[in-house]
């Protein structure tokens, strides 16, 4: 389990082509994300952090360079690369359970196995009892939980999250962060987490990768020295120090 989900980003350029013009967002970015690691990507809006996440997910083709998952180049989206988007993307015509079992069913797991997996992950995100609800009947936070369950039920090697908690109130956000950390500790999935919230990045991840809009590449990487087994809260001073370093680097 520990040795799958290793991502190698090699000299990647990302951008959009319109006619003969090419607008490059990410320039020559290289980064290694170890199997089972938890990495946050932060940067000002428009710096290309979402684009990079989508490229890892196989939704954008790099202009040059390549992204490897366990040594194999990522060319199309796949079930190994689970994504939780910023927007709600639960299928409105499927119940929570039908949404969560969608991935396993596509992978050819039978109905019985898929249902069992769905139940397991619905319980993991604390949505037991809501299996037969349609997304519209759930609150925003519950929909996010269901989306996380749907991504996890597929047992992806990598979980890519694009500002998943951006639109939530503070209380719900903390509770979902706690759930995410315990999921990470239990499943050892590689998590790449895009956010613009420095506190969130420091609280959750082992490494905070700061992407500069000016250069379109990594301006620095901060290690938080967090391990799987560490308790969630660090000392206030350490957090404060990390935060001020991040903020200094972000404004640079």
């Amino acid at each position: 389990m520990e040795d799958i989900g290793h991502i190698e980003i090699q000299h990647v350029c990302l951008g959009y082509k319109s006619g003969l013009d090419t607008r490059t967002v990410i320039k020559d970015l290289s980064l290694t994300l170890g199997a089972g690691s938890f990495t946050s990507l932060i940067g000002s809006s428009g710096c290309g952090k979402s684009t990079l996440l989508n490229a890892i997910g196989g939704h954008y083709k790099p202009l040059s360079g390549s992204i490897l998952l366990d040594g194999v180049e990522i060319k199309t989206p796949s079930a190994d690369l689970g994504i939780v988007f910023q927007q709600h993307t639960l299928f409105p015509w499927k119940t929570v359970k039908e949404n969560v079992r969608f991935g396993p069913m596509r992978r050819g797991a039978g109905r019985v196995v898929s249902d069992k997996l769905a139940d397991e992950y619905i319980e993991l995100v604390g949505l037991s009892g809501y299996e037969n609800y349609y997304p519209k009947m759930l609150s925003g936070g519950m929909q996010h939980r269901a989306e996380i369950a749907r991504a996890l039920a597929n047992k992806p090697a990598v979980l890519l999250m694009d500002e998943p908690f951006g639109a939530l109130d503070a209380q719900m956000r903390v509770s979902l962060q706690d759930s995410l950390l315990s999921i990470w500790q239990n499943t050892h999935v590689t998590i790449v987490f895009v956010t613009h919230d420095v506190d969130e990045a420091i609280r959750l991840s082992q490494r905070v990768v700061i992407i500069s809009q000016r250069s379109g590449s990594i301006s620095s990487i901060i290690e938080t020295n967090k391990t799987h087994n560490e308790s969630i809260e660090r000392s206030a001073e350490r957090t404060h120090e990390l935060k001020s370093r991040c903020l200094t680097l972000l404004s640079a």
């Binding site: 939704h59 199309t76 079930a79 690369l81 689970g82 994504i83 927007q87 299928f91 969608f102 596509r106």
Partner: peptide, 29 residues
């Protein structure tokens, strides 16, 4: 059909045919 829904389905392992029957047509109903 919102592109995000198609992307979500693709990331869950759905091929083009699956996307058609599980996302595009239900959305258009």
């Amino acid at each position: 059909v919102p592109i995000e829904l198609v992307k979500a389905a693709r990331s869950l392992g759905a091929n083009r045919i699956s996307v058609l029957f599980h996302v595009v047509i239900p959305y258009a109903i």
